[in-house]
Write a protein that binds this DNA or RNA. Structure first.
Lengths: 117, 117
DNA sequence: CTAACTGTACCATCACTAATAGTACACGCG
DNA sequence: CGCGTGTACTATTAGTGATGGTACAGTTAG
């Protein structure tokens, strides 16, 4: 379900955060569904429990999951997160588009690339 | 000409590399134009010469500049760099577009945003 | 030639972060 | 009670970014 890419230069805990964010945003994990346990996932990925905990703490800080002490971590199901993510992505896209237009690509050419998706 | 953003989490040398790449790609620095000297730029930015050297080494590795020992660093003027950059940007754009489509944005809405630039 | 400027190559050090290892404690559930 | 949860520590290791300093080699202007 979750894989670590050791060729990726980003830290492990960041990769884990990113993977779960995508799973949750795309609906692959439902609201109130239980997350893998800290120790269990650490075992599965052969990494340290502290690293998982760091990732989960970040996911909680960003509102993707909530914690019930003694029971586990669960998906929050906050629908506003999708909008936030959309805005983030669109912001990044527009920055990149600006750059590529400045170095000589035409808007039409770019839109054509997008249409082909 | 070059500024360091200390709020930026990226390392200083990476920021410098990025700034010069943009200046060169946009034509703000012409082919064979001389780069600021390692020591001079370090003084100007109040940082260590070694940090500038690291940035210049990276720019040279990527083909943006060339070195003449005893004289300085100069802009290479390799026109293929623009194409490479375009492809990089378009790749990133398409990835982000895929994501934003998967979480429910319409292609039309996205294209509208781009048209408005 | 000399002086002042270029780049380059080191080395040592400090600070910060990522990750590991291990221990301990508190809560919930069967 | 026992087990599995999360949480909070501390200590340690490894890697990287950045600094400070020294030294050497090539170019150029005087």
């Amino acid at each position: 379900m979750i894989m670590i890419d050791y060729k990726d230069t980003r830290p492990i805990y960041e990769q884990i955060v990113e993977r779960f964010k995508i799973l949750i945003l795309k609906g692959a994990m439902q609201a109130d569904e239980q997350m893998p346990s800290v120790r269990g996932l650490a075992m599965e990925l052969s990494i340290n429990p502290n690293t998982i905990q760091k990732a989960y703490a970040e996911l909680e800080r960003q509102g993707f999951i909530y914690t019930v002490k003694g029971r586990g971590n669960f998906v929050s199901g906050d629908s506003s997160l999708i909008d936030k993510r959309k805005k983030e992505c669109v912001g990044k896209i527009l920055l990149l588009v600006s750059e590529v237009l400045e170095i000589g690509m035409s808007k039409a050419e770019l839109i054509h690339e997008i249409e082909m998706l």
